[in-house]
Design a protein around this nucleic acid. Structure first.
Lengths: 217, 217
DNA sequence: AATAATATTTAGACAAATCTAAAAATATGT
DNA sequence: ACATATTTTTAGATTTGTCTAAATATTATT
């Protein structure tokens, strides 16, 4: 498996190619910031290798083997993200770029040891699930903070908007994954929220609240 | 810098290209397990980039910039080796292959954090020095265990033979880097040694002793 | 110093991954 | 349903890093 092949499989998986849904050439090209013609070339190659089904002019779906391979890469990516945050004090918004490189390191022993060192985490710093070695994972039931009623509480598990701007805002306000958030009050006028987080009290806009995922107990 | 370019610079450095000694095309080809014609191509490219001096039919030496770049890669390689051994319980003979991949990860912050996590080690698990960020490093004064007189003692700092067979022998006999070795007796007949190491006593052949580097106090 | 042996370079080819521009298929709008 | 717009594919070119085989330079031998 080349690095490029791995990146294509990952992108197709993220576009939903695991459930026999046909993924369009253009969608893949956009996701990967490349040209549709390049996608066509790679689709033929990956079909040849039995990693996906390719129908001319129709699109692409992953085979079971393609799904398995994609999950292995996603597993590595997310484990490295946890490592960077937990062991090397990277902030939330810095990990992605480095993990994009580290996910391609080929060593089963290495990733297993990293997994053990981190004590087998189930979720990455963005709240996304980490597949097991055998490819199992469970999506966390999550809802937007803005959807919770007054007096409810939830654990911060992820973001909808993953832009660097937003992640930096969260860092600046010390809102981190795993934090418990209590909703103290809601403002009818602009739907802004009065919350309690890690002992502190904070006022946040509806725009913030509708980009933060929480898991309710 | 592509991965291939980095590998060429590293190989040339290891062949002595840092001290304006001309390194032959064939030597590089052998070190890298590639063909001389490929080396010629790459030499032209790296000369173009100002990383080495290339004289047709003569050979190649690194420029100051080439040396700096090579040292940065060697620094990364050796820090990753320490990480694998100290933090992930890799054995001595397993680290090289993985470090060959990890050394190409591009993130200054990552390698600085790894350096800090390991508490700024000066030597890698093979006893080779780790260059600082600014490219400084000091070769350790070392001698072969077989050269020490009776009653002398030294700290195990490296190996001459780096074959997997030899490294596995050391693991099996729990002879590890950093261990202090006392020479209790020498056998005139075959120059085998009676040593004390980490509390245990051991009989080792001259062939073993002449492939183990120690640093005397 | 001429010849043989070795080392190095050149020229041309190839595979991987990409691109552009043109052609072909599919989808859309009225 | 027909013309138009969009999507996708094809064909051919490009870049990077490699190779083989032939040509050229250097080194060693007698």
């Amino acid at each position: 498996m080349t690095r490029s092949e791995e990146n294509y499989l990952k992108a197709i998986f993220h576009l939903g190619g695991q459930n026999s849904k046909l993924i369009a050439t253009n969608a893949i090209a956009e996701q990967m910031e490349t040209k549709p013609s390049s996608v066509t070339d790679m689709a033929k190659k990956l079909a040849e290798k039995g990693l996906l089904h390719y129908k001319r002019y129709q699109g692409v779906t992953l085979t079971p083997m393609g799904v398995k391979t994609a999950l292995a890469i996603i597993r590595k990516h997310r484990l490295w993200e946890v490592f960077l945050v937990k062991k090397l004090d990277f902030t939330w918004d810095e990990v992605h770029e480095v993990a994009e490189q580290l996910e391609h390191i080929k060593s089963e022993k290495l990733i297993d040891k990293i997994d053990a060192l981190l004590e087998y985490p189930k979720f990455d710093p963005h709240g996304d699930p980490i597949p097991t070695k055998t490819g199992e994972f469970q999506e966390r039931a999550k809802q937007l903070l803005s959807e919770l009623p007054i007096a409810a509480q939830g654990v911060c598990v992820g973001v909808k908007d993953t832009s660097s701007t937003f992640l930096k805002f969260l860092d600046k306000n010390s809102i981190a994954l795993g934090n418990t958030i209590h909703i103290l009050d809601k403002e009818d006028f602009d739907n802004s929220l009065h919350i309690q987080i890690e002992g502190r009290e904070l006022q946040i806009s509806n725009q913030i609240a509708s980009n933060l995922y929480v898991k309710t107990a």
